[in-house]
């Protein structure tokens, strides 16, 4: 093109980066940023902000309702355990891959049907592939004498409700 032809005797200044490379890098950089932005926005979009899942806090019942050593609450997938030390609420979901465990009264063990993990009633792992003990949930005695369990609040095994 005529506009681009160099006038003789007027050498162009030597630059480390040519105009073409400069523009290519600007365009490439802009596209990269836009691509990363699009990916981040998509990941954000895919993670819902509001969930319509069942509430994690529930009223289990009065302490006197739980006279067995281990009572399973199927709707909540939670055990209410009663021992001479006191009471605690514990997850019934196996820490290995999420199957529902079952209390075996004859062996005083909690067993998982999927891959054979076994837990003591305190939640500690006795056998099998489970990597962690069954978590204990916060359980408080409300003013009206009803036990309230919060499945989002995991407490240490030593927090035992004296009743």
């Amino acid at each position: 093109m005529p506009g681009e032809s160099k006038a003789p005797g007027k050498p162009e200044e030597k630059t480390a980066v040519s105009r073409r490379d400069f523009l290519n890098e600007i365009a490439g950089g802009a596209l990269t940023i836009a691509g990363i932005g699009a990916a981040v926005v998509t990941v954000n979009y895919s993670s819902p902000n509001v969930l319509f899942e069942p509430p994690t806090t529930f009223r289990a019942g009065k302490p006197d309702d739980f006279i067995d050593p281990v009572t399973y609450l199927p709707d909540q997938q939670v055990y209410i355990v009663r021992s001479d030390k006191g009471m605690w609420a514990m997850s019934a979901v196996c820490t290995h891959l999420g199957c529902i465990t079952q209390f075996k009264p004859e062996s005083e063990q909690i067993a998982c049907p999927c891959h054979g993990s076994k837990f003591k009633i305190a939640g500690t792992v006795q056998a099998g592939p489970a990597p962690r003990p069954l978590p204990h949930f916060s359980m408080v005695l409300g003013e009206d004498g009803v036990l309230v369990v919060d499945k989002l609040e995991i407490v240490s095994d030593s927090e035992i409700l004296k009743v």
């Binding site: 990941v43 895919s46 993670s47 819902p48 969930l51 319509f52 899942e53 069942p54």
Partner: peptide, 15 residues
């Protein structure tokens, strides 16, 4: 986080 995004929540439900 991957599990949360895959399920669209914490549980296996509608999402």
């Amino acid at each position: 986080p991957i599990r949360f995004m895959l399920l669209g929540g914490h549980i296996i439900g509608q999402n």
